[in-house]
C-alpha cells in the first residue's frame, strides 16, 4: 500500500545555472540517530492507529470464550467463520448491504449529474441570476447536519418518501455539495472556448455538447466527486437513521448495525464480523483508489 503525495502545483523553481554551494551538513551519525528515532516514534503511533482494526478482525474470527477468557493474542485458535454467516444471514446484513449499495449508487449518480450540469453553466456562461446562485451557496456552505435534519425529514415526509430508498437518495444527494459544484465549475472554466464552437459547427446542441464532449472530458473531477460522495453516502448515519425509524428492512449498514447490537447485545463476535462486513467495501475502494482520495482531500484546502 502506498499513498502518494498530493499533487499541488509547486511554484515554478528557476533552474539553477550554477550548482549552489553545498549546504553545511549536520554530522551524519547524529542525523541517522534522529532518523531512526523519528521512524520508531511514528511506528509506535501507527501501531496505536491500526490496533483497533487488527483487534476487530481478530475478534470477528474468535469464539466468545476466546475473546474474553484468553489474553491479548490477536491470532484466533481456529477461525470461526460462522460469526460471519450469523451476521450475514441471521443479522440481516445481506439486506443492509443491498440497501447501502442502492442508496450509495443512487446518490453518487445524482450528485455527479446535478453538480456537473450546474458546474458547467456556472463555470462557462454568464446569465441572469448567476451571482445570486453563487451567493446563496457560499452563505449556506457551513450548515451543520443537525440543524437541517428536522426540516429535511418534514419535507421528505410530506412528499411521502419517508421510509423509501428514493427518500434517502434525495436526502443525501439533492442538497448541499457546494464543493462538488465548485470543483466542476473551476474545471469547466479551464477548458478552451473552441470546444463549444467546433461542436456547434458539427451541429451539436447544448445537450449533446455537454453529454458527448464536456462530461467525458471532466473525468478527473467526476472521479473525485464520486469518491467523496461514495464515502459520504456509505458512512451516513443520522439521515438514514431518522428516515428508517419505522422500516428496519430498508436500513443501510451503519444503521442496521445499531439494530443488530440492540438485539444481540451479548454477541460481540457476531458484531465484530458485521463491522468487518460493513467496512470491507470501503477499505477495498480506498486501497484501489488511494491516489484519488488524497487529491480529492487536498483539493478542499486549495480552494
Amino acid at each position: 500500500m502506498s499513498l502518494s503525495e498530493p499533487t499541488v502545483r509547486q511554484r515554478p523553481t528557476a533552474a539553477p545555472d550554477t550548482a549552489p554551494p553545498r549546504p553545511r551538513r549536520r554530522p551524519i551519525a547524529r542525523r541517522r540517530v534522529t532518523t531512526w528515532l523519528l521512524t520508531a516514534g511514528l511506528t509506535v503511533m501507527c501501531l496505536i492507529w491500526v490496533y483497533p482494526f487488527a483487534w476487530l478482525i481478530s475478534a470477528s474470527l474468535k469464539t466468545p470464550l476466546e475473546l474474553f477468557g484468553k489474553g491479548l493474542n490477536l491470532v484466533p485458535d481456529e477461525p470461526q467463520w460462522e460469526n460471519y454467516v450469523r451476521a450475514w444471514t441471521d443479522g440481516g446484513f445481506s439486506t443492509y448491504m443491498v440497501n447501502s449499495i442502492i442508496v450509495t449508487v443512487g446518490s453518487v449518480a445524482l450528485v455527479i449529474l446535478r453538480s456537473a450540469l450546474a458546474g458547467y453553466v456556472l463555470g462557462r456562461f454568464d446569465f441572469v441570476g448567476r451571482k445570486l446562485i453563487i451567493g446563496i451557496m457560499v452563505v449556506t456552505f457551513f450548515l451543520p447536519e443537525g440543524y437541517t435534519i428536522i426540516a429535511v425529514t418534514q419535507i421528505t415526509d410530506s412528499m411521502g418518501l419517508l421510509n423509501t430508498h428514493l427518500g434517502m437518495i434525495l436526502g443525501l444527494g439533492a442538497g448541499g455539495h457546494v464543493p462538488a459544484l465548485l470543483l466542476y465549475a473551476a474545471y469547466f472554466r479551464s477548458l478552451p472556448k473552441e470546444l463549444e464552437e467546433s461542436a456547434k459547427v458539427d451541429g451539436a446542441g447544448h445537450f449533446r455538447t455537454f453529454f458527448r464532449i464536456m462530461l467525458p472530458l471532466s473525468m478527473p473531477v467526476t472521479a473525485t466527486v464520486g469518491l467523496l460522495q461514495f464515502l459520504t453516502a456509505w458512512n451516513a448515519f443520522l439521515l438514514p437513521l431518522v428516515f428508517t425509524l419505522s422500516q428496519p428492512d430498508l436500513r443501510p449498514l451503519a444503521v442496521g448495525m445499531v439494530g443488530f447490537v440492540s438485539q444481540n447485545y451479548t454477541d460481540h463476535t457476531g458484531m465484530a464480523a458485521a463491522a468487518v462486513i460493513s467496512l470491507t467495501p470501503l477499505v477495498i475502494v480506498f486501497i484501489l483508489l488511494q491516489r484519488h482520495f488524497v487529491n480529492a482531500v487536498a483539493g478542499a484546502v486549495k480552494q
Binding site: L113, R114, S115, L117, A118, Y120, V121, L122, F125, F127, I133, I136, M137, T140, L143, Y147, T148, I150, A151, V152, Q154, I155, L170, G171, G173, A174, G175, G176, L181, H206, F210
Partner: peptide, 23 residues
C-alpha cells in the same frame, strides 16, 4: 442554462435553503 440548473435549484432549494428558513 436554466434547464441545466434546474436539478440543483430544486434540490438545493428543498434540501438546503428551505430547511435553513423553515427551522
Amino acid at each position: 442554462i436554466y434547464l441545466f440548473l434546474l436539478p440543483t435549484i430544486v434540490g438545493y432549494g428543498l434540501y438546503t435553503v428551505y430547511p435553513l428558513v423553515a427551522s
